[in-house]
Amino acid sequence: MALLEINNLKMDFGKGADAARALDGLSLTIGAGETVCLVGESGCGKTVTALSIARLVPAPPAHYVGGEILLNGRNTLTMSARELQAIRGGVVSYVFQDPGASLNPVFRIGNQIKEALKPHRPARATDAEMIRLLKLVGISAPESRLKNYPFELSGGMQQRVMIAMALASEPRLLVADEPTTALDVTIQAQILDLLRDLKQRLGMAILLITHNLGIVGDMADRVAVMYAGQIVELSPAKELLRRPLHPYTQALMNSVPKLRGDVQRLSAIPGNVPRIGKFPPGCRFAPRCPVARPECSDKLPELIEVELGRWVRCPFWK
């Protein structure tokens, strides 16, 4: 049994006539100890997918119309508030994009870490345990950090604190939603190294959300590429980077600068990501696709397994 199994998830924002489909038939599995990257442009539904795992999207406006999210074999969509509290932190922990905004500005670091320990491991909500966690994420002088307010730490330090809090309850799945986007480039590498190192030591699964294909190769076992509320390509990371199959994935890769090889002009993908609820008919990428054919706009292609472990939502992938 996979640790996380999202099956055909459909979610709207709003209800009735105002309903706008944000996730449309999304399926994704993550095995224990596996690292999966979820890649896509802003607004494609990555964050909403991640937050849905622990039902953290405010509902309303969110409205789940179909599918299931099996975490440890139990559907989080039908859980009571009490059950959700138990899995939040207990089974799945989150690290968010902007550590400065994810830490409450008016409480000390120690106060907030203790809060992450108390619901799940009340006996270990001690200073010693908090210091151990801060050491684990590479924070120097952890004793004095406990008394700091978030604004007294740098962005990288804040993100380390967030990771320490996420690890506090020993989750089996760590969801990191663009954990390095708000940080300096040098700090980004440190945080990613830390995540990889922690994963090896603690053996948890990671769902890493990013719009940066550059970090996929370093981190991921498998990659899911998302476009307009759907997964368009799902593949082992190495193979995807070597030979992307879906035109959207190819376009994404061409828009990343390469250090080696012949210098080409960077190509941008023309047009914009379709807005939620305003998805085009047929294949959603067709209006921006360089190899689109007239029939692409007629029928929404299925996600099909074209090679072992490689899934593509495009009939013309060859």
């Binding site: 937050l51 953290l56 207990g90 905004a101």
Partner: peptide, 28 residues
């Protein structure tokens, strides 16, 4: 605010999240 979502993600009860995390900042 994101810290409220983050607090919920830690498994804190909704009442506590509102009382401690949201209200304390709303009072400023």
């Amino acid at each position: 605010a994101e810290y409220v979502t983050a607090a919920r993600a830690r498994g804190l009860g909704e009442g506590w999240v509102i009382w401690k995390h949201a209200l304390r900042n709303a009072i400023n």
